[in-house]
Amino acid sequence: MSEVLIKIDNILKKYDDNVVLDGLSLDIHEGEVVVVVGPSGCGKSTLLRCINALEPIQGGMITFRGEKIDGRSKTITALRQKIGMVFQSYELFPHKTILDNIILAPMKVQKRSRADARKEAEELLDRVGLLDKKDSFPRQLSGGQKQRVAIVRALCMHPDVLLFDEVTAALDPEMVREVLDVILSLAKQWKTMVIVTHEMSFARAVADRIIFIDQGKIVEEGTPSEFFDHPKTERAQAFLQTFTFDKVEKEA
């Protein structure tokens, strides 16, 4: 197997007395697509936020290529550049045009020239079919378009891994596809990704490995077909059950 990119080692995360992640360990390998599923409130978003130190952890350790991830360390901005994140609510900067949203961090953080950042941003926008929107403001875009811009913005920093937190959950159904297609094409290019989603058929298509979390612990993991077709634990079976519907038998 390829090299371990992110090592999550026995982490503990709590808010006051509420333990959210409880001794969770997980290795993410280079080029791997890990999909994290689980019931609402089980700690999926929290896990992603801990990976790029948006949340401090109270125990255990997370390393990136062997380097400790710590929100208070001097190297954290360098590490975060390597870890792209896309949020459910897009979080584009509303006061900047699409192009400026994308090139802000490459210019300010990586000190790239405007021309250079702009050239790459335009190429990436073109690839997701949004080049004509480069001078628009975020509010002029649909949800699906905003989310594709958010992905481009993360990509333009050349991250080694991308974290997706339910990036289609706020979208109208007809826009879900356009965003998921972008992520699928990234998977084909061997991008390392950690994806939290409730779209089970997408999870099955994109994942190398499925992680099922419940109550802050990994309860089950496996390949998509192992997990979806032959879930081993009762909790995973119960969870998957919530996505299937029995034919309604109308009463006579």
Partner: peptide, 28 residues
């Protein structure tokens, strides 16, 4: 606050985040 997080996740420092992302929006 998630605007701040989104800027931080791009590798921006606290100061850069305040200056380029938060202040312009707060002022307007």
């Amino acid at each position: 606050p998630i605007q701040t997080e989104s800027a931080l996740s791009l590798g921006m420092s606290r100061t850069q985040t305040i200056w380029h992302v938060i202040l312009p929006q707060a002022i307007s």
